[in-house]
Simulated assay, not measured.
Amino acid sequence: DTTTLFVPEDYLINCTPGMRKWWELKSQYFDCVIFYKVGKFYELYHMDAVTGVNKLGLVFMKGTWAHSGFPEIAFDRFSNILVEKGHKVVRVEQVETPEMMEARCKSLAHPTRFDRVVHREVCRIISKGTQTYSILDGEFSETHNKYLFCIKEKAADPTGLHHTYGVCFVDTTVGKFYVGQFLDDRHCSRLRTLLAHYTPVQILFERGNPSVETQEVLKGLRSSAAQEGLIAG
């Protein structure tokens, strides 16, 4: 699974508490760029720092590993740049204050050094099909809908004459959600028409599910839509 990364425990035990948390998150979101909140800044480490330098024009900070970052006010601008370049961005926020951390540690019978770091959690995963806009993200500049398209194909028709699809369109720019199911011919005519009318920017499907014919239809959108196969369950 290229979306995850195995990080040995004997490596994590030698990390600082903050870096251990980063590696734990990176192991789950290896295919994403993590914007890791530290105080009033978002920091990028290791391979993400390299991406930040190459794609965002950031500079490496001094240290023993690759490290870059930017002020929190620039989150919208930098996340949008990466998403438009085809990356997914994970936003990690601090969910407790240093005072809350101290109180939590005092409540533990035997706190370890890994407990003595403020809790951080993933609060948002941003891709082309999941971008939302609010006052915190700056001005809304899109002039067209951005659809996230999910498709599930029913088991193949023994005659090979029909396809049955379950589909879902989500337009997060305006908060609209469409879901439906339909029977199609062997040429996938209705599916082709649907995708022509509502051209998606991102397509999700179950790994191994779409038939060969359906995959050929989706291949025609690779230049305009990011595509990702997900593991069921």
Rank of each mutant, 00 (worst) to 15 (best):
F149N: 07
A156Y: 12
G160A: 08
Y147Q: 03
T172I: 00
T164P: 01
N145T: 08
T172A: 07
Y178W: 11
Y165H: 05
V179P: 02
R190A: 08
N145E: 12
N145A: 14
H144Q: 12
N145Y: 09
V167E: 12
L191F: 05
E153K: 04
K152H: 15
T143L: 10
L161R: 05
K152I: 15
V167H: 14
H187T: 11
L161S: 12
D185N: 08
E142T: 01
T143A: 08
C168W: 08
L148N: 01
D171A: 00
L183G: 03
F169S: 07
G180I: 02
R190I: 05
T159C: 03
G166W: 13
Y147K: 02
L195W: 06
L195V: 11
T143G: 09
H187S: 11
G180L: 05
T164E: 13
T193N: 12
T143K: 06
Y165A: 01
V170S: 09
R190W: 05
G166V: 15
G175I: 00
N145K: 09
N145P: 12
C150K: 10
G180F: 02
G166Q: 15
T173M: 00
D184Q: 01
L191C: 06
E142K: 05
C150R: 08
T143E: 14
H144T: 11
Y147R: 05
N145W: 03
Y178R: 04
L183N: 07
H162Y: 06
P158W: 08
H144C: 06
K154H: 13
T143D: 14
C168F: 03
L195A: 04
V179L: 06
P158S: 04
C188N: 09
F182N: 11
T159P: 07
G166I: 15
C168T: 15
F169Q: 09
Q181I: 12
S189W: 00
V167L: 14
C150T: 14
A156L: 15
